Simulated assay, not measured.
Amino acid sequence: MNDTGATSRSFTNTVMSLLSRGGHSAHSERKAGRDLMDRISDFFARHDLEVTAANLLRAHAALSGIDLRLARKIVEREEQDQPVTQAWFDSIAEEEEGRTDDLADFERLNADLNESIESFSRTARTARSAATDYKIALNEHTRSMESPGTTSQLLASLTDLTKALLERTRQAESEMKRSEREAASLRKNLEKAQRAAEIDHLTGLPNRRAFEGLLERHYREARGELEPLCLAFCDIDHFKIVNDTHGHETGDRVIQMIAQALSRASNDNCHVARQGGDEFVLLFRNMTMREAHERLDWVRERLSDRSFVNRTTDEKIGAITFSGGLADVFAYENRRAALRAADEALYRAKGEGRNRIVQAEKER
């Protein structure tokens, strides 16, 4: 193996060690921070990457374990003795652009809705203020009527006051109706944007953002109900070869097909989402590791028995398989540790020959 291969092994060991690291003392945390900075510096020098804010953020996300998917892609690329070029780094970022645009639309609509609600509140405060003013004025006129004076003058003054209140009430009512219409329209658009921001448009599955919400909710509920909770990372075996040989359109259809296959395993207790690229993530509620393994393996076996053909060229693609890593969420300190464990198990499944499901080792 040449120097690049040796460096690849070193980088692989570094990342995998990082992903499996548990808690640290304050001293260890400081040392870990210095080690991380050293690895980032070495990473930039080794691949001759320009030190930009965007590149620093990506490198930090990968080497710190925040972005497990990117970390594994870098590991795989280096193990294949391929450099991490600027073009490759940028292509990874482009995969997230559509999701970012959806989130930007969602945040904009959310801000508009909040403004509409505030406008409605201002209108309500105005109407309440008008009613308070009328009450004060009416009390004053009531006291005036108890004193000697001309009844006709008092009645005329009261009539003028009532007319003024009616006009202000009509104005407030009109403004409130307008605010209600605006709020209803914005709320409808917000719900639509929220759904769009949480759906992967290629497969129709929930995306990574939606899965994070699912994991948070089911983690809390399952812990309260003392129910088991498992999660799995899966990705398509040799997907790059499919893309390079048959084109990206065929690659997209393969991703859709895998999504459909995994969706057959889903129900109220099993949720499937697209993590990004050719990777999927599943959450198994109220299922033991054995039950979750059996369900996921059932999908894998049914898929591996089939042979596929490129519909455009009629060329044989052959078998399409996937590998998976499965972890018991409550066997780890927190959700992030469980995600790391599932990711490591997936990496082991790839190393052991692919087309298999590997269970994560329990945290020591």
Rank of each mutant, 00 (worst) to 15 (best):
E291N: 08
E291H: 06
E291V: 09
E294Q: 00
E294H: 11
R295T: 09
L296H: 10
L296C: 10
L296M: 06
W298H: 13
W298C: 14
V299R: 11
R300D: 11
R300A: 07
E301D: 10
E301Q: 14
E301N: 07
E301Y: 05
R302K: 13
R302N: 15
L303V: 11
S304K: 14
D305P: 00
R306E: 15
R306V: 14
R306W: 11
R306F: 12
S307A: 14
S307F: 01
S307C: 04
F308D: 10
F308K: 07
F308P: 04
V309T: 10
N310T: 09
R311S: 06
T312Y: 02
T313M: 12
T313D: 01
T313V: 05
T313Q: 03
T313L: 03
D314P: 01
K316W: 06
I317F: 09
I317C: 04
I317Q: 08
I317S: 09
I317Y: 04
I317H: 04
G318T: 08
T321Y: 01
F322M: 13
F322D: 10
F322K: 12
G324D: 03
G325Y: 00
L326I: 00
A327Y: 02
A327N: 08
A327G: 07
A327T: 07
A327P: 08
D328H: 09
F330R: 07
F330A: 06
A331R: 07
A331C: 08
Y332W: 10
E333M: 14
E333H: 12
N334T: 12
R335T: 13
R335N: 09
A337L: 06
L339K: 05
L339Y: 08
L339S: 09
